[in-house]
Design a protein around this nucleic acid. Sequence first.
RNA 1: GCCUGGAUGGCGGAAUCGGCAGACGCAACGGACUUAAAAUCCGUUGUCCGUAAGGACGUGAGGGUUCAAGUCCCUCUCCAGGUACCA
Length: 852
Amino acid sequence: MIEYDFSAIEKKWQDFWVNNKIFKAEDFSDKPKYYVLDMFPYPSGSGLHVGHPEGYTATDILCRYKRMRGFNVLHPMGWDAFGLPAEQYAIETGTHPKITTEKNISTFKKQIQALGFSYDWDREINTTDEKYYKWTQWIFIQLYNKGLAYIDEVAVNWCPALGTVLANEEVIDGKSERGGHPVIRKPMKQWMLKITAYAERLLSDLEDLDWSEGIKEMQRNWIGKSTGAEVDFKVDGHDAEITVYTTRPDTLFGATYMVLSPEHKLVERITTPAQSAAIDAYRREAALKSDLDRTELNTEKTGVFTGAYAINPVNGKKIPIWIADYVLASYGTGAIMAVPSHDTRDFEFATKFDIPVICIIDPNAKDAAAENINVADVLAGKACWTGNGKMINSANEAGLDINGMEVTQSKAATIKWLEERGIGKGAVNYKLRDWLFSRQRYWGEPFPVIHMEDGSIRLVDEKDLPLTLPEMKEFKPSGTGESPLANAGEWLDYVDPETGMKGRRETNTMPQWAGSCWYYLRYIDPDNNSQAFDLEKEKYWMPVDLYVGGAEHAVLHLLYSRFWHKVLYDLGIVSTKEPFQRLVNQGMILGISYKDSRGALVPNDLVKHTPEGPVHMQTGEKLEEFPAKMSKSLKNVVNPDDVISEYGADSMRLYEMFMGPLEATKPWNTKGVEGVFRFLRRAWRMVAESEISDRKMDAEELRTLHATMKKVTEDLETMGFNTAISQLMVFVNEFSKCETLPREAAEKFVIMLSPFAPHIGEELWRILGKDDTIAYEPWPEFNEEFLKVDEVEILIQLVGKPKTRMMMPSDIDQKGMENLALANDEVKAAIAGKTVRKIICVPGRLVNIVAN
RNA sequence: GCCUGGAUGGCGGAAUCGGCAGACGCAACGGACUUAAAAUCCGUUGUCCGUAAGGACGUGAGGGUUCAAGUCCCUCUCCAGGUACCA
């Protein structure tokens, strides 16, 4: 008999799968299709961490299960390989990003293959491959032709000292992350994508998706739809109007001032000479601050009076116009009417600058009490009330009277009045902004764009794609804020072959999101050189049936790719409105960390384990164990390679799934790997090192087998991997007690184990005398018949408390249960002298006797 | 602040429709095997009281509904993720 030698077994079957293309997905098969997608990784230099294989293992188990269920499964993998780290490494070492990327991909691929995932490697894609980004560029051209791509002056984080533009996350407290140099806002010409044109569809189509409510809610918040009205205010003494957006048109009578964002285009025109110096100073200061700074310093409201007044259209009153950076240029119209009595921000501002507060809503007394707000204070303008109530002081002589109305009603009435007079209209607004689509980097897709001498923009002809990145030796920033491509020499030059007009190529590149926006479509037809993908194949495979990945992509990646997908849908080249039908986010895996009594973190290499618990190696102080994000500084990072070499890939996979529910955050505990490893060894011994017999199973064995088939099947359908594994453990615990193992039980168990631990599954299948792969064996069907028992243990409760247990026939009716229970000696003794009020019988479970 | 999750033994977690809380695994303890150890196997293990039989308590806290609540309702606390002057 052979020992369980995981390293030999795993190598053997991984080679077998790859060499025989066991997991090749077939286009247009008669079988039902099932498309399972993993979020493809950025192949970083540090290799795989234990978080990656969590989602990958879950999808792999499901794919293997679905194949056994007769599905034609598409399960591909690829590389999201453009990105900053390779470029930074290039700046430091001169190594071309292409070389770094290739090296990292090969490490990642080796690590992923060592886990035995059943990917169809013939469909591997790489976003930095010019055969791939040719089509990313092609999609950009389609976006441009549809009017969804435009150039705009947008402020970027410009760091003069580094001579480069920084991403938001590279700026900390207004300083560059590296070096701590000052960062300022500098307007630059940038490509924008008009995602806002799709805001409504991105919102409403969420409805039919099988995603967790949490993720849908995050997307809804990000899109941020609000309904209200736009209202025009005349400026006193000027031939000008200011349009404001408000969600509370009903509060117009309470508007006592108006605020423009510092960037508002009317500010210069309306500012009075006396105020202009102060206004200029304030605007200059605001321009230097990033949006982030503006919101971080949100403690004190600031602002300056322009000297001008607006006319409140409902009552003709003159109200002062201020500028303040709490009003953002990018939302709504960049101007607000301020109602300090019923908006907390306006109230703070008005209090600070002594602006009148006029109450126009009499608060609902109960609501006010619940929030500890004094109604008299609100009515006197000394407190702010944002809740419900009845309108007061809200009528004019021009036919608007909303006094006494509740909020919704008064809103509608006001909008109607404004619309009739042409001074306002109902309006909808979204927080969602257009997508800043250019980066000042080398390592990204070049835009297929030429800026011509005469100022026009020309797109590269589709037949001339891909526009490849030029070979360069230096990847340093250009120093002007442009991408390193500004130094690309001849590559930049373009001459129109017919007119001879000169042009210069776009030097921006696309962001990392671009390649990941449509990769799921390329897997469908990865080698197509005449189309992004074949339309018939797309119809066959789409949509993605299950998409699994980390929650960190909940908003941006998923929103951006949904947007591109809808554009492609409108172009008629994809057949579904949405790309990802079902989405599951795997939880984070935490490492074990330690802290001392003061709560200070202690790196794991300074911790000594004693029988009394962990202590500090140097001070001997007792430490407390707790889960924390894996990080280099805490030295609590678990490397999958180490786990695999010690316990094998099957144990690694099994443990990742056994830890807890896929979507939960859970701490890694290497002792737990040992536990599942022991289970696999027990399973090995049970099948490979004990006698397999053709004897008939007894009723109890049949029940265990069929209960296991039922539980594992149902748990796979709901992705309850941890409980499926525990049932397989129960099976092994039961059948290990048998002298000989019935052949049927052995075979069905090995089939059920194989999606979770495929290497040992294949090997045990061989040992059971089979000579084909187990990957396409039909999944075993359980039979409810065998789950039946003649007698069940019924709990007898007395007034809801467990009293005793007794056996009863399993098909007994409620009356029979009652009779048997009352005939029980213990029950008789317990209810002696008491009156039975009520008896509740739950078949198969319990009898509850209410007596006193 | 707001939105979304969550809180169950020493630890990770389990518990269809409200129906025996703690499956399965880890750790710990006891035993068998062994010269010994490892490995393996068998057993114990929610807490408290009790020699025992047995009893009381127990799913973040408090209240409620019910014959019966981890599960349903109300109030609160804490933790995680997201978001942040969005008018």
